[in-house]
Design a protein around this nucleic acid. Structure first.
Lengths: 263, 263
DNA sequence: TGCACCCATTGAAATGCATCAAGCCAGCGC
DNA sequence: GCGCTGGCTTGATGCATTTCAATGGGTGCA
């Protein structure tokens, strides 16, 4: 499984749309919105097929990002929002005293960059955690198209609203929950987002480092590591470096308390 | 000063638009967007005067809320967003184990309720911390009008984006900062939001209780209280119950580290 | 093959905040 | 006035997580 991913990563041209099968990826580099596997969980949701063509026309598909490449940086001029097609993107900001705060992880089908709208400059940086491909959606075009397609406007409002509610869930998590609860909630979140993409909900590879996890959840690396060890000892998780297997979903949900939604 | 506010609160009909002068409030109950004092920091920002009339037509101004009244509750059907005209609104959600998490405080000129768009149901509850008046903006009308007025669409996108960046700032605060830093940041935030409304940036009355502050900042009441005492002892703040005076802004900023923006 | 580097794990000690507990003060109804 | 209640403050103690420190394992490169 891991070998396949590695293979994929050496053939960026071929793994633009998500590569999940053990077979060699055959996705077209320039796959359109109409036949993108992610369609139903990405922007085109709720659009008529004629409308999707119009959306497709404004979407720009650039070269894949290599691990560590930046999609944009804090304070960069805001021009576009981005839909992830493959790989994982980490959004983060640097605090005044130089430390990093991870504000989100974006998986295929998810849209990022909307924080830049308010000031016309990105409020955070976005960096690829692994080889990744994104669709760039120029915001001015999106605005214009939204005026013609009320469904698109609606959908984009919903996307932004969703970002808000997710941030608020994270706020609650950080404010009220223990280290164990936070980790459990994150694992369930990754799990359900995997399931949404028809991948395994119980076995997956975390694309981010322990440092990133800790940073996102307001914990130190050491605490993250300890919690993983503890959950493994309790036969709730099986952890091998970045490979995670959820052995006991019920117990994990019990620990997380937070209900992880996946729509 | 406090006496005036009290007077105002007994005459709700008259204090709909913000009451800040020692004189008896003379604001019209049905003040329109065109001549609302908050115009420049509320939705109509960036609209032509003709457009403001159109916006004004869809805005509904109901009876003021009394302290403790709910504007909406979690899971209520989402129909409108709300602009605060006077008073303060607290947004909060109840966690699965019954505890409360305050997600935001909304002052005059600020817009709330956008979290409800994604699921067509409110993701949190909103409650008046004191007598408050709000403008209700039916979302379907706003959507329709946005299609006609690209500036309005843009502005609403910006409002939502702003909510996202503010939530992310809170995430950083909760994840990285000490109790002292969090309180300092909140005081500076209230201060700058007051200044935006041409009120004193150094002397104000906190509309929320210590419990709410703690809840918002992920701290217990006791810690909040201790921090206030400490900051008072250091001659940075003067605290008398809910009345706050910022004695040393520089030191407060120094503690907060976070740069509080006010645009 | 071996070195260097980064990431992850584990242990021991330190600490900031929560928890528990008691007391104070203001407002309010009786 | 009296006693009640709710919000706020202050002190003593405990604990979860951080901090400091050391070690191990994987990966890339010479």
């Amino acid at each position: 499984m891991q070998a396949v991913r590695e293979e994929c990563m050496t053939i960026p041209v071929e793994q633009v749309s998500e590569c999940t099968t053990p077979r060699r990826c055959t996705h077209d580099y320039q796959v359109s919105c109409q036949n993108c596997r992610l369609g139903s969980i990405c922007l085109p949701l709720a659009l008529e097929s004629d409308d999707i063509v119009e959306l497709d026309n404004i979407v720009q598909r650039g070269r894949p990002l290599q691990k560590g490449d930046h999609l944009y940086r804090e304070a960069d001029e805001f021009t576009s929002v981005y839909a992830v097609r493959s790989g994982t993107i980490k959004a983060y900001r640097v605090t005044d005293d130089g430390r990093e705060q991870v504000t989100g992880f974006y998986f295929p089908g998810e849209v990022l960059g909307m924080d830049g709208i308010s000031k016309n400059a990105h409020a955070c940086s976005a960096k690829a955690l692994e080889t990744a491909a994104v669709c760039e959606i120029p915001f001015s075009s999106l605005e214009q198209l939204s005026v013609q397609l009320p469904n698109l406007q609606r959908h984009f409002f919903q996307l932004m609203s969703r970002e808000i509610t997710e941030d608020q869930q994270l706020i609650t998590l950080l404010s009220k929950n223990t280290a164990e609860e936070r980790i459990a909630a994150l694992m369930l979140s990754v799990s359900s987002r995997n399931a949404r993409r028809k991948l395994s909900a119980t076995q997956f590879r975390l694309p981010m480092s322990r440092i990133d996890i800790g940073n996102y959840l307001g914990l130190t690396v050491e605490t993250v590591s300890r919690v993983f060890s503890r959950l493994q000892k309790l036969d709730i998780l099986r952890v091998s470096n970045k490979e995670i297997e959820i052995v006991d979903v019920a117990k994990l949900q019990d620990i997380a308390k937070v209900i992880i939604e996946d729509n």
